[in-house]
Structures are given as structure tokens and as C-alpha cells.
Design a protein around this nucleic acid. Structure first.
Lengths: 239, 239
DNA sequence: TCTGCGAAGATTGCATCCAATCTTGCATTC
DNA sequence: GAATGCAAGATTGGATGCAATCTTCGCAGA
């Protein structure tokens, strides 16, 4: 809440990531400035920043639209994320996990396991599971102590429309498998097994990506049409 | 040359990457707008973008400074780059290299080899070698067909002050070794050996990073002081 | 001499106005 | 009827003025 520009960046980023602005949607400076009660100046700054972050596409003199991701794009994102998180896991394993993160992950695993034994699997529990999953991954790559790596992973984790649909169709078996992955990964890291940790993390993220793509396809027309890149301006009529 | 803002972004980015603005240097909006003959508006937009790209540090109400990278930071950047370029190499090897890039790399290797047989090793040849090296790497990760991966590698390859000092102290033996790495990597990719290609690329980039860090340290006081992070504002006096 | 306070100067943040470009719709022409 | 050209509206790009914040420098006091 430092400057208005930063506030607008946060507000718009959340809306884009939550799908409030769907992929392909056009972002109008005046509408946004009215809805957020600021002038166009901080809005324009925020749009430029979000475009640089990769959340928006920008065409000069035309405007900004929420970037659309095809199935191939998503596969590419997860391919990159898998090697990055693999590197993070290896790094933590080889340099030694910090006591703080060891305790955090231990607690995280216990809470996740408890969650899996719940009977009524409501949306609230799903959200809680998503939070724990995020906490687990973030704790690891933060403990790698590599600022650049953290930035790259962060960029790979914030993609329009992924956040909202990410863990929506997961059945209990999938969640249990994910928990098992986490437990093994923690074991490898805690025991300094760098190569094992790297491979486990890579495979874990890879599987997550594959499930996401499968759900993406299963979502059918909605997801497909929303993910289809829509041109900002009409193509020129002259051939 | 579409909008002034984009022109300013390019101009400032080049200056930062070439070291014209040294790490830790403060960027004044008015000075820049005067030197580039534009108003503060496009300059402000450009500064925000470059900060988002990671080239500048930003402190609200204080301004922008060229981001400084410690030796640990550089090691981290190269660690990330190595796994990313490893992934790119594996991807190209497994999906099959395109004819265009196969020809390009073939030509690139021939030109590099010819360069190594030159007798008078002038600065011009050094620059030429740097260009060929860049072309080689870029051709590979571009051929992977992963937009996100390309963006991440691009971000890892544009770091303040690296461009200028990158290949300045390399002796002929080092360059020959690098050429040999490239040749082997091309062989692995062209023969569809994904794992081998990945490992070769990782090691190649890792070695490049290690050499850079060694030169960085050897540069001694200059590099060290330039790389030392300088606080933007005075620390608050009250404890 | 050093520390803390305060006022003046400098710099950034934001709002608003104008210019440039694009988009849209209609009329005209083939 | 379809395509082209033109004009009006809408939207973005840039410049400028003012407010808010920070920085710097000097001064008073311990």
C-alpha cells in the first residue's frame, strides 16, 4: 500500500490471476481508473508492469489484453517449472535445509495428512489444501537462497487463469499421491540426497502439469475457446 | 521505434547492460528525459518496465538504481540458466531439430572454428566470437518452441554489467574448450540424444558461470566495489 | 565534536490536458 | 452487393503542473 501504482498492480494482478479478467479480455484504462478511483497514470504504469511480467499482451496504440495460454504454452511453462523446482530442491538438499524450513515442512506435511483424513471434502478444505501445497513448494525454493531462481519460479507460477482452476478437479487419490510425493521429496532433501531430490521435484511438477493439461482439455469448449488467442485488432483487409 | 516509451526502454536497457550506467548508479528521471529529449512520462514508464525486468531496483518515492549482483547472485543466475538451457537442449534433441537451425548451427560451428585459427586476436575478433556464441545458444533455445522457456532464459541472460565483461578475459584455450562443448552439444542434439544434450548444456553453462565468477573475483576491488550493493537511502537513524 | 531537529531544496507520484493513432460506422462508387 | 474511402468517435501516448515525500544541509544543544 505504498504508492497507488503498486496498489493497482496488485489489484489487477489478482483479478487477472483469479480469472476475473478472462484471457483475451481487453483492459480499458479509463474503466479501470474509474473502478479503482485513481487517475489513468497509475493504471498505465500498472498495465506496463503486468505486460512485462507476462500477464498481459501489449500492442502499441491499441491496448492491453489478458494473455492467453494454449495447451502447448502450459506444457512449456510446466516443463520449465519442473527443472527450476528440481534445481531448487537439489540446492536445498546439497547446502542443507535450514532448521526453520525443516520445521515448517514437517508441520506442513502433518497438516496435509490430517486434511486427507477429513470426511466432508468441502470447497474450504480444497482451498486449504491449495494453500498448504503452495506453502510447501514456496518454502523449498525460498530456502535455496537464490533470488534469481525464486523470481523465475514465481514467474512460472503466476499464469492467467491457472490459479483459479488449478486444484478444482483433483480427486482424493490424486491429492494422496501428491502428499506422498511431498513426503518423499522432504525425505530426500532432509537427508542431503541432491540428485534424488531433483528428480523427485521434477517428476512431481511434471505430473502436476500433466494433470492440469488433462483437466484443461476435459474442460472442453470453455477452456479451449478462452485459451484461444484472439487478435486484438482486425487484420488489415488488404492482402 | 513504435512509441517513445519503447525507444526509451531499449536505450536505457542497452546502457545498463553495457555498463554505461554502472551497478548502484541512480537514475534520475529529469536527467534522462533531458538527455533523450522526451518528457518524464515515457521515461517513467521505461524505468518501471526495466525494474520489472530485474535490471533496476526500485524504492517508492526514492527512485531507481541499477541492480547490483554479488558473486552469489551471479552463481545463482548461472545455476538457473544451466538447467534452463539444459531443458532447451533436451527438448530440441527429443522433438527433433529443425532443418533451419541445423544448418544455422553447422554454419555457426564452422565460423567459430575458423575464428579460432586466426592469428591476430584483436578485439574485433573477440566481439565476433561473442556474437557467434550468443547465436549458438539462442538458436537452440529458440528451436525448443517454448515461449515461456525463451523468456526465462532471456531474463537470465540480461544482467547488468555481464554483457560488457563477459568474454573479455578469455584465453584461446578457454575458447577452444567452449567450441568443443558446442560441437559435442550439437552432435547430441542432432542425434536425438536428449539426456546427453541436457547434461552437456548444463555443464557448459555451469563452466561459463564458473569462469565468469573467477574473472569477477580476479577483477578485484573494481568489480567487488561495483558489485557491492549500495543502499539507496540512509538507514533510519533511530534504532 | 557529535547528535538531533528542522527547514529548504530536490525528486518522485499523480492528475489533467492535448496530440496522435486507431476503430467504427456510413456513404459512395464500381 | 461488395469494397473502398472518409469522417466522427473512442482510446492510447505524451507533456505539464501541482502535491507529497524524501534528501540534504545548516543550526542548536548536549
Amino acid at each position: 500500500m505504498s504508492t497507488r501504482g503498486q496498489s493497482v498492480v496488485r489489484a489487477l494482478r489478482d483479478k487477472v490471476l483469479d480469472g476475473e479478467y478472462a484471457p483475451g479480455a481487453r483492459l480499458n484504462e479509463i474503466e479501470i481508473s474509474n473502478s479503482l478511483n485513481v487517475s489513468r497514470t497509475p493504471v498505465r504504469a500498472a498495465l506496463a508492469i503486468l505486460a512485462t511480467e507476462g500477464l498481459l499482451d501489449y500492442v502499441p496504440n491499441s491496448g492491453y489484453v489478458v494473455r492467453s495460454y494454449s495447451v502447448q504454452d502450459i506444457e512449456g511453462v510446466y516443463a520449465a517449472r519442473s527443472v527450476l523446482e528440481g534445481l531448487a530442491a537439489r540446492t536445498v538438499a546439497e547446502k542443507g535445509i535450514s532448521d526453520r524450513v525443516r520445521g515448517l515442512l514437517h508441520k506442513n506435511l502433518a497438516e496435509t495428512e490430517a486434511l486427507l483424513n477429513e470426511t466432508d471434502w468441502s470447497d474450504r478444505l480444497r482451498d486449504e489444501w491449495g494453500r498448504l501445497n503452495e506453502e510447501f513448494h514456496e518454502a523449498i525454493f525460498a530456502d535455496a537462497g537464490n533470488r534469481h531462481l525464486s523470481e523465475l519460479i514465481g514467474k512460472s507460477r503466476s499464469i492467467p487463469l491457472l490459479k483459479g482452476v488449478k486444484f478444482r478437479w483433483h480427486d482424493l487419490d490424486t491429492l494422496a499421491a501428491s502428499y506422498s510425493d511431498h513426503a518423499e521429496l522432504f525425505d530426500a532433501i532432509a537427508n542431503g540426497q541432491g540428485t534424488r531430490a531433483e528428480h523427485l521435484a521434477r517428476e512431481h511438477v511434471y505430473q502436476a502439469g500433466r494433470r492440469l493439461v488433462a483437466n484443461w482439455r476435459r474442460a472442453g469448449v470453455d477452456g479451449a475457446s478462452a485459451a484461444t488467442r484472439r487478435p486484438i485488432r482486425k487484420v488489415s483487409r488488404a492482402a
